[in-house]
């Protein structure tokens, strides 16, 4: 049976992991290659590397990191951040990335989704959507969540699917950083709206939040950063709890 996936996310700036990380026996908390390897060995199902560098230099560094991660880990990983052309995707895939994720560049020019999925196949194109609940509406935001668009989450998700995305990564800005749980209502509605897998992001604080995101939010995968980085929760412990709750996981 297909399992639900647990995906740690590493935010990388100018070649270094940004958020503090607190593993036991950690030799270098800022080294993304070392961290990715640790997570892979600890039972992560996939890893997301998000480049938040704003400079050209930072972007060049990312290329080497991707190459290095690909050499060292034996599970799939996705690369996102600053990808806006066929050449960018080619470069990352040639460095060994399995999937790429696009966000603002897809909003700026939606045809990019069609072009990438035709060229590389839907299976390696994840579209990330950041949205915030304003009043009763989920409003899509761009440029790292700083600028509101006039797009509605569910309409944009449908369009993204029709244009050929293979997967959605939905981050609820309303829940992100609150540690109060994922946006399960919106996630469940999203699952009814589209027929491609959905990765839930934003709000993980305790184990029960992961149970809820799969049972109530109907998510196919859950992504988190700080809850894993700070050593509050190991992936194996989390998966044991999920299994006890009859959620299929790879243990």
């Amino acid at each position: 049976m297909l399992t639900k996936r647990i995906i740690p996310c590493l935010d990388i700036k100018n070649g270094r992991t940004v958020k503090g990380v607190n593993f036991i026996d950690l030799k270098d908390a800022g080294d993304p290659v070392f961290l990715a390897k640790q997570y892979a060995d600890m039972g992560a199902d996939e890893i997301v590397l998000l480049d938040i560098s704003a400079t050209l230099e930072g972007r060049k560094t990312m290329r080497n990191i991707v190459l290095n991660v690909a050499e060292h880990i034996n599970i799939p990983f996705t690369v996102g951040g600053g990808i806006s052309s066929i050449d960018d995707v080619s470069e990352m895939l040639n460095c060994g990335a399995d999937k790429i994720s696009i966000n603002s560049s897809a909003i700026k020019r939606p045809d990019l989704i069609n072009e990438l999925s035709q060229k590389f196949g839907s299976q390696c194109i994840t579209v990330a959507i950041d949205a915030k609940k304003i009043g009763s509406e989920w409003v899509v935001h761009t440029t790292g969540g700083t600028i509101a668009t006039n797009l509605n989450l569910f309409n944009w998700a449908k369009e993204v699917e029709q244009r050929g995305a293979g997967e959605l990564l939905f981050t609820s800005m309303t829940n992100d950083g609150t540690k109060s749980g994922f946006a399960n209502e919106a996630l469940a509605k999203l699952s009814k709206t589209v027929n491609i897998p959905i990765i839930a992001s934003g709000g993980a604080g305790i184990k029960k939040h992961f149970v809820d995101v799969f049972k109530k939010g109907k998510a196919d995968a859950a992504l988190a950063a700080s809850i894993f980085h700070y050593g509050n929760l190991t992936i194996v412990d989390l998966k044991r709890i999920l299994k006890q709750q009859n959620i299929q996981v790879r243990l």
């Binding site: 299976q123 293979g166 027929n195 491609i196 196919d220």
Partner: peptide
């Protein structure tokens, strides 16, 4: 068949 999410992505037995 589209009774399941397509593509299948992830770990299966």
């Amino acid at each position: 068949n589209k009774v399941v999410k397509v593509p299948q992505i992830g770990w299966n037995t």
